Simulated scan of single mutants.
Amino acid sequence: MSPRVVLVGPMGSGKTTVGRLLADRWGVAVRDTDEDIERAEGRTISEIFVDDGEDRFRELERAAVAAALDAHDGVLSLGGGAVLADATRERLAGHTVVFLRVGLSDAVKRVGLGTSRPLLLGNVRSRVKALLDERTPIYEQVATFSVDTDGRSPEDVAEEIAVALEGVA
């Protein structure tokens, strides 16, 4: 079993929204590894960061991604930092992975003040820029292809992905 598509990208790129649209289009389930972690732990990502630290969260994230890649055949959205783990990047090989690319301005608008996002505490714009600078090359490395999301509706982004994948499915 393998996901039909795995969506990666930074916070604010639209993974959750685009994932739902694709799942609806194809009549498959959508799964989000951040939601899997929250459900399993019975608390939010922010609470896990505060109570247990980022290292513990990343450990939970690696396990959640591995489980989802093995057991899910619909649309899978990964948390923004999931691709930081070598083990996760290795597991993504052979899967259809789409990088939802977002620029700094659109990302900041979409995440707002980031109060529920532990990595954005402090100056949101500078934190988002640092995360984009750090992670974009990694997203590009694991992606089968990339889709720009700036200035576009989630429906338009989902349509581009669907057309590209339906052409090879």
Results as ranks from 00 to 15, higher is better:
residue 61 E to W: 08
residue 164 A to L: 10
residue 130 A to H: 11
residue 10 P to H: 13
residue 94 G to L: 02
residue 101 R to L: 01
residue 29 A to R: 14
residue 106 D to C: 12
residue 144 T to V: 03
residue 111 V to I: 14
residue 107 A to W: 00
residue 132 L to V: 02
residue 148 D to F: 05
residue 134 E to P: 02
residue 154 P to K: 06
residue 33 T to H: 10
residue 88 T to W: 04
residue 67 A to L: 11
residue 31 R to Q: 12
residue 110 R to M: 06
residue 143 A to N: 01
residue 123 N to R: 12
residue 161 I to A: 06
residue 93 A to H: 12
residue 142 V to Y: 04
residue 148 D to H: 11
residue 41 E to G: 08
residue 109 K to Y: 08
residue 98 V to E: 00
residue 141 Q to K: 13
residue 70 D to R: 15
residue 47 E to H: 12
residue 12 G to Q: 03
residue 166 E to K: 07
residue 112 G to N: 05
residue 108 V to S: 06
residue 98 V to Q: 01
residue 131 L to W: 00
residue 50 V to R: 14
residue 45 I to Q: 11
residue 3 P to Q: 06
residue 147 V to S: 00
residue 20 R to V: 11
residue 53 G to I: 05
residue 118 P to Q: 03
residue 130 A to Y: 02
residue 69 L to W: 04
residue 90 E to K: 13
residue 88 T to A: 11
residue 10 P to E: 09
residue 26 W to P: 10
residue 65 V to M: 02
residue 67 A to G: 14
residue 77 S to K: 05
residue 29 A to M: 11
residue 69 L to N: 04
residue 25 R to C: 01
residue 19 G to W: 07
residue 4 R to D: 05
residue 113 L to V: 14
residue 166 E to F: 09
residue 1 M to L: 14
residue 131 L to Y: 00
residue 60 L to C: 08
residue 59 E to L: 13
residue 55 D to H: 14
residue 70 D to E: 15
residue 2 S to M: 14
residue 99 F to K: 02
residue 31 R to F: 06
residue 65 V to P: 11
residue 66 A to Q: 13
residue 71 A to R: 15
residue 144 T to M: 01
residue 8 V to E: 03
residue 5 V to F: 11
residue 167 G to W: 08
residue 24 D to E: 15
residue 161 I to Y: 08
residue 2 S to N: 15
residue 90 E to Q: 14
residue 160 E to N: 04
residue 109 K to G: 12
residue 95 H to C: 06
residue 21 L to Y: 02
residue 135 R to H: 03
residue 36 D to S: 13
residue 52 D to Y: 14
residue 48 I to S: 10
residue 127 R to V: 00
residue 92 L to N: 06
residue 140 E to A: 15
residue 132 L to M: 04
residue 45 I to S: 09
residue 94 G to R: 02
residue 44 T to F: 10
residue 143 A to H: 00
residue 85 A to L: 08
residue 106 D to W: 00
residue 34 D to I: 04
residue 12 G to Y: 05
residue 152 R to E: 13
residue 61 E to N: 10
residue 79 G to S: 07
residue 53 G to W: 09
residue 134 E to G: 02
residue 92 L to M: 03
residue 47 E to P: 10
residue 42 G to H: 12
residue 94 G to H: 01
residue 15 K to R: 12
residue 146 S to G: 10
residue 48 I to D: 08
residue 68 A to W: 05
residue 21 L to V: 10
residue 139 Y to F: 09
residue 131 L to E: 04
residue 83 V to I: 15
